[in-house]
Design a protein around this nucleic acid. Structure first.
Lengths: 336, 336
DNA sequence: CGCGGCATAGTAACCCTTTTCAATTACAGG
DNA sequence: CCTGTAATTGAAAAGGGTTACTATGCCGCG
């Protein structure tokens, strides 16, 4: 019932091969038949069956984007950038969200591989001791690039932000504002969180500041854990005069806790986050943050991936670190 | 090179048909061969080629989600809900973002159809006079459900919020708070925006309030146009004492304009939005808004679609209107 | 007149799986 | 020993394209 190349071929008393060649603009075809084919195709409203084509060409013109969640503005922006980069080149993007669950992530990737996607962009949650899935990707010879969360020792492309620089940038800024008792609400136990904390410590060391160990509180990556973490910090004596937060949601949670405690912000405590999420300039207190260039990460990752699709010679993996940029707002204004 | 059913079949000296049957748990197969096949498949790490399967079954187990943008929190939440609903049923989601451009939307949908997706969820930008694309979808007999933006007269499933109720709810709330000069920053010229305005007018009429026509300002759907629109409203005399905004981003823009003008919020002017986007309780002034149940919209649309995939008897289109819920926050607190 | 060369069209095989239906085997019953 | 039935297995044909190679016709040229 659906119109295929065979329909056109029979109508015109030619072979499907000729139709195929015309439709792909490939091979020597006389102008006359080319036009007949094109016209009939339009009349019948012929649409290529990409599944059939994919079966033989082994290209689906579809890439997979695997993210922990979309509702986090950072990932939403990455996704949009990837989609926009990839669309003009005729690629589709299948999107999967694994809710920070490594098993779901693994299954989704396997399932994408089974569907023969041409490439993968992944913000992985795999622990460093369980990297099977990447071997499986490699065995299939599907190019992939990691974003946001690097895995050291994995011979793979990576596009992300320089997390240590984020920690340095934010902390130095707080020091520059006159803060001396700078606490840190760190993220979940993972590479990123550690890098940011390393930057934090580095900045403190460079400026000769010593901070009690209890000033660093481990938490999650959402506002709820920022709220809880800040409540712990608020019991510290002496009270910190600044907090560098793992990311903006955590900072937002922290701000809520601070304001609830009746403290002034800025004034009693300054807060800096990271991510520069949309609307962070419209919060209760406009948030000083570090921009991670989420759109650039998405666009660059997509371009890197495109460049690797279809080239047999496995090029050397590439790592792109986007330098972060401080965005100064009210939450860290100097108290005069 | 890749391991296929044929690889397994040859290894075991049986036919691919048998392998296929085992792998699908279908047809009568002796326990002995079933186990041999399963074991060999695991040994070889066999992965089904879904493209090949799709070609014959005409099912890709992939649905398309077509949105104007992901960075808008509403759509991000919808997307996440769709993904989570669809994943446990073995479906993938290809996501496309058309940047409010009807032509891109059309192309993307066509291209998804060519890739044989099993169903579509669309937040369309097509003008009511140009509905070709929906005919094309229908001709392919691909089920689809519209979300967020209905098209009257199009015999199609729809899941969205009751926009008129949103306008009523927000406006009545403002009236209850003692406001009498209630302005409206309406959205772009489209059905949604009109419905919300209709609800706004309805509430005013019901309470016997008359409002000058200049109190309604047309704009876009982003914070920038809320900012501009509010600046226009601020020139009105008498000054409005409340604004019902098309959505939260517009409300956020309006708040910025109000605060910049040195007015008190709430106090001089109350602001209500719609959407209840993540973080709207953490804004400079926590925003009273109307929750649109974005997650429910995504989940219900996905379920509706799933229910229609694979059933030949084209069921009657269904319309689900989610009743909105008022979320009261500081931006409309009664001034005592 | 025969041959090489070019432009165009077509044949057959293949991509990997499912589906339909026929073939084979085993076994019970007459 | 023959027949009928049930349980397994397999052969062949899709499904809609692409690819490599072959066939055809026409031309100019030695």
């Amino acid at each position: 019932m659906p119109v295929t190349m065979l329909t056109i071929a029979r109508d015109l008393n030619i072979s499907v091969v000729t139709v195929s060649k015309v439709l792909r603009n490939q091979g020597r075809i006389s102008e006359a038949t080319r036009e007949r084919v094109l016209r009939r195709a339009k009349e019948l409203n012929y649409q290529m069956n990409w599944v059939a084509r994919s079966l033989v060409t082994r290209r689906t013109y579809t890439i997979g984007l695997v993210l922990p969640e979309f509702t986090h503005p950072f990932f939403a922006e990455v996704a949009q950038a990837v989609a926009e980069t990839v669309r003009p080149r005729g690629y589709h993007m299948v999107l999967s969200c694994f809710e920070e669950n490594p098993e779901i992530e693994e299954n989704e990737i396997d399932s994408m591989l089974a569907r023969q996607i041409d490439g993968l962009i992944i913000a992985t949650s795999q622990p460093p001791e369980h990297l099977d899935i990447f071997q499986r990707i490699r065995r299939r010879e599907v190019p992939y690039v990691l974003i946001d969360r690097p895995i050291i020792g994995l011979h793979a492309c990576f596009v992300g932000v320089d997390n240590q620089a984020i920690g340095r940038l934010a902390t130095e800024h707080l020091i520059d504002q006159g803060c001396a008792r700078i606490a840190h609400l760190r993220g979940p136990d993972a590479r990123i969180s550690e890098a940011r904390m390393a930057g934090y410590r580095q900045a403190l060391a460079k400026r000769g500041l010593r901070i009690p160990g209890s000033y660093v509180v481990e938490g999650g990556h959402r506002d709820a854990s920022g709220y809880e973490g800040m409540k712990i910090l608020l019991k510290e004596r002496p009270l910190p005069d600044a907090v560098f937060c793992f990311n903006d949601p955590v900072a937002i949670g922290a701000i809520r806790a601070i304001l609830e405690a009746g403290l002034k912000l800025p004034g009693d405590i300054s807060v800096a986050g990271s991510g520069n999420i949309h609307y962070s300039d419209l919060l209760a207190v406009p948030l000083t943050t570090v921009d991670q260039g989420s759109r650039r990460i998405g666009a660059l990752a997509a371009e890197l991936l495109m460049a690797r699709i279809g080239v047999k010679t496995s090029i050397k993996p590439e790592t792109i670190l986007i330098p972060p940029k401080l965005v100064e707002r009210q939450s860290t204004h100097r108290i005069v």
